[in-house]
Design a protein around this nucleic acid. Structure first.
Lengths: 146, 146
DNA sequence: CACATTTGTATCGTATCACGATCTATTATG
DNA sequence: CATAATAGATCGTGATACGATACAAATGTG
């Protein structure tokens, strides 16, 4: 309750710098997505669908779970992406309540360009991000105690 | 234009997993901030102000720059935080166009709790995040070429 | 097999947030 | 001093997320 749980100014700065690195990456991602005609969240949905682990089905629920959003938020994203022509809905083959989402060729083309841009950006700024995370962990309670 | 810039399914999965790790952390951050009565962005502003590097002044513009948002977006965040009692505005001493933002004791108390929670979460999930980033970089173009 | 329950998706209303455009106040400059 | 540049603030709009609610298909129960 007392000093044990407190944070030094340096630790606040470490946390702030880590968040700044994350924000920097997300800001790049938002700007790049918009340059390619979609919103950042829509890009993330495309990536989540196309980067689904083997055996996972691209249903609304599965996507929502992987994006850590509610299913109806995923519905709205899918609506906008369908309108933009990046994906199509297909009724589930077995369970006809389900909707399977598939990328259109246009959607795949956008995702490919964005993925390349993000990979390049991560090559550039990833190390900084990793280092800011390390600073937080290095100066954290457990690291200090050990 | 051809194969050189293309991505394998595994690389899409690496990118998707990295984004998932980031989303996981941000989702934790959003939920935790809300539990403490503020929004995620407002928390980030508090952290940015309190974790400012030595010598940097907590003006609206400086804050906006560190959060990678436009100055008027920062104004809105400051409005809501002032309403919530977490910060106060002070007119700039030298340049009276400036507004310096200071955390109130209540704001510091919230930020402290959130910083502790985030540190704990990063101790828990930080390594996974770092590893997913490494996977992207390890399998990236330059790493392959070298 | 009829019917209640569960599950998957969709719709509606509301709040936060970000932005562009525009405005005011203060400071700097020619 | 007139004008330009800078720091904030305000307004309107669009994307997003959520809770509450609705509906349709599948599943469980008597």
């Amino acid at each position: 309750m007392s000093k044990a749980g407190d944070l030094t100014p340096g630790q606040y700065r470490d946390l702030a710098e880590f968040r700044r690195q994350i924000r920097r990456f997300l800001h790049f991602s938002e700007a790049t997505a918009k340059e390619h005609g979609i919103e950042a969240r829509q890009h993330q949905l495309l990536l989540a669908v196309h980067g689904l682990p083997e055996g996972a089905n691209p249903t609304i629920r599965e996507i929502a779970s992987r994006l850590f959003i509610q299913h109806h938020s995923a519905v709205e994203l899918v609506n906008r992406l369908e309108l933009a022509g990046a994906i199509v809905r297909r009724p589930g083959a077995r369970d006809r309540r389900e909707v399977w989402v598939r990328l259109t060729p246009a959607g795949r083309a956008i995702l490919r360009k964005l993925a390349l841009a993000h990979r390049t950006e991560l090559e550039r700024s990833g190390p900084e991000l990793a280092q800011s995370l390390n600073s937080v962990l290095r100066h954290s309670r457990r690291a200090m105690a050990s």
